[in-house]
């Protein structure tokens, strides 16, 4: 019998409120190491809220989040989150901010804290070049952020996530805006990260075909957890009909 990998992330009876409204109610799941988990559900189901609460961007009302086996609270979270890479849903770089692709990706490499800005610049430069090459964006390295297209920005942000090895990658509808080839390359890269580098991935997605083809497990959310399991179990017509409406099928 194969050994079950210890969970990278455990969420236990998590409830998150936005104002007086309960956006996520009593959700529990765990993400084993080296797995790619997708969260699916209709608009307003609480997917982004759940992820933001896990990452500490939103406070939660009750429940518990454990990252890498440790309770994630106000004190421990900053240290634990150093091993988490996050790609937000709508990242818009303000064109007025003077920053090049090299500089942004380099920020992903840095351990944030008190340090002289030139410490480790050679290692940072090499890591940035490697990360940009991984996402096939080497040609963009000297470009300013304001000159990038939406697809190019996605690649650069992914390089920002990859530039330093981490344990967990959290994506909020990350491939949105990529063309068909770009999306396929994006998922191929995620598979490479998972299989060759042992990353765990938690991603929100509306692309159920891609989820079925690429993810190991799926959470179906609509304020509360409706179903969790393999893509075949969760993306079943009966469940999808119940969540998205009658007549929905993959």
């Amino acid at each position: 019998m194969p050994a079950i990998a210890a969970p990278i992330l455990t969420v236990d009876q998590l409830t998150v409120r936005r104002g007086s409204r309960t956006a996520v109610h009593n959700v529990s799941f765990s993400l084993p190491a080296g797995q790619d988990m997708a969260i699916v559900g209709p608009n307003g189901a609480g997917k982004s809220t759940l992820v933001q609460a896990i990452l500490g961007l939103l406070p939660y009302h009750s429940g518990e989040v454990r990252l890498f086996g440790q309770h994630s609270d106000a004190q421990s979270a900053p240290l634990l989150r150093q091993d988490v890479a996050y790609l937000p849903q709508n990242f818009l770089a303000d064109a007025r901010i003077p920053m090049t692709v090299m500089e942004l990706v380099g920020l992903g490499w840095d351990r944030l804290g008190l340090q002289l800005p030139w410490v480790g610049w050679r290692d940072r430069r090499n890591a940035v070049r490697e990360a940009l090459a991984q996402v096939e964006a080497s040609h963009l390295h000297n470009q300013s952020l304001s000159s990038l297209s939406g697809g190019e920005m996605k690649r650069v942000l992914l390089a920002y996530c990859l530039v330093r090895p981490r344990k967990l990658l959290v994506l909020d509808e990350a491939p949105a805006g990529l063309d068909v080839n770009g999306e396929a390359e994006f998922y191929a890269l995620l598979n490479h990260l998972k299989q060759d580098q042992g990353w765990s991935i938690l991603q929100i997605s509306h692309d159920l075909e891609m989820v079925r083809a690429n993810c190991d497990c799926v959470l179906c959310l609509n304020q509360q957890l409706l179903k969790q399991g393999s893509p075949e179990e969760v993306l079943h017509p009966d469940i999808l009909n119940a969540v998205y409406g009658v007549g929905f099928a993959l």
Partner: peptide
């Protein structure tokens, strides 16, 4: 958000 997730 990117900064907060990184523990800033």
């Amino acid at each position: 958000s990117l900064a907060k997730v990184r523990g800033v």
